[in-house]
């Protein structure tokens, strides 16, 4: 029984165990890896992707994809930066950014639930359209040199801690609590696990799915605020390709593509693992021509370890 419990613990936390192995190996193999400054760097690198992954994970847990996260991030960054550059107050600009994200999410949810479009198709439409809108608004221009107060969420510090890291921790704790301890959270899992059963048991599936997409949009827009602050600029190209990283992180963390299975804590593990891999490759200054291949091999190694562990657990049972 104890053995089985131990194996269950291993399985439930597999991504974090892989991270421990990865960190231990690199403490010896990678110069400057095992330092406080570098851990801080890894968490900073994880923060923007991490915020996007919370939204993506909510969608995946409810049994849906959201491809529009990266475009929503870019639109939000562009809108907010233009707003502050045109003299609007910072709270108002942030309000516009977050509202834009929620509107995109509402559009996604409505297209899926009210028009009956497949989530992949619906969010593909917004993925294309929203980046196009960001591009059209600034005509390819990069907005830079933003007010310091606007950059606080991306580049500020609270004591010795960068705000980005604090935000990452707070948002994960908050949404983890929402998923585990609230009725809405349980409904998300139920809808993802079996939509029909959820409906029969009286859950308003439309409301749950639309809310999930609105939260995803809101978080992506917030990630846009953090990125604009972090880079002291905004471009319609922000976040290009991030949707694939977000999905990879969630899946590496064990969130099922079929919905209903996984936890945010594990998805965060996926984010930290991906960021750590990139960090190690940069610290080693791997050849520009081989860096992608090596990154792919490292991810494959991590996923294989996870798969082996699952097989081992099944065998032991």
């Amino acid at each position: 029984m104890r053995k089985r419990e131990f194996l269950k613990f291993l399985l439930d936390n597999s991504v974090w165990i892989i991270i421990v192995v990865f960190f231990t190996l690199n403490a010896f193999l990678t110069p400057k890896f095992f330092t406080l400054l570098n851990f801080r760097n890894i968490l900073i690198h994880s923060s923007i992707l991490g915020i996007v992954v919370i939204g993506e994970s909510l969608c995946l847990l409810s049994g849906h994809f959201d491809l529009s996260v990266e475009s929503t991030l870019a639109l939000s960054a562009v809108l907010g930066s233009m707003a502050v550059k045109n003299g609007l107050s910072i709270p108002l600009a942030i309000g516009i950014m977050l509202m834009s994200g929620m509107l995109v999410g509402f559009a996604n949810g409505t297209l899926i639930r009210k028009l009956g479009l497949n989530a992949f198709v619906a969010t593909l439409i917004t993925y294309i359209g929203i980046r196009g809108t960001a591009l059209g608004i600034v005509e390819g221009k990069t907005i830079w040199n933003l007010p310091a107060a606007f950059c606080f969420f991306g580049a500020g510090n609270i004591g010795i801690l960068p705000v980005q890291i604090v935000l990452l921790a707070v948002l994960y704790l908050l949404f983890h609590a929402v998923l585990i301890y609230t009725k809405f959270g349980r409904h998300v899992y139920l809808v993802g696990d079996n939509q029909l059963a959820a409906r029969i048991s009286g859950i308003n599936v439309d409301r749950v799915v639309i809310t999930v997409f609105m939260l995803s949009g809101l978080l992506s827009a917030f990630a846009g605020l953090v990125m604009a602050g972090r880079l002291n600029s905004a471009s319609p190209l922000f976040g290009t390709g991030m949707v694939f990283e977000a999905m990879s992180a969630a899946i590496i963390g064990g969130i099922s593509l079929r919905g209903g299975i996984g936890s945010l804590f594990m998805a965060l593990g996926g984010v930290v693992l991906l960021s750590s891999i990139s960090n190690v490759l940069n610290l080693h200054a791997v050849s520009p021509y081989w860096i992608q291949t090596i990154r792919a091999l490292m991810i494959l190694f991590a996923v294989t370890l996870d798969s082996l562990k699952r097989r081992l657990v099944r065998y032991e049972e």
């Binding site: 400054l37 690198h45 880079l231 990139s278 940069n282 610290l283």
Partner: peptide, 13 residues
């Protein structure tokens, strides 16, 4: 741009 940020941070570290 973000990749440029990460590379700068990691290499300087």
């Amino acid at each position: 741009t973000e990749e440029g940020f990460k590379i700068t941070v990691d290499t300087l570290t």
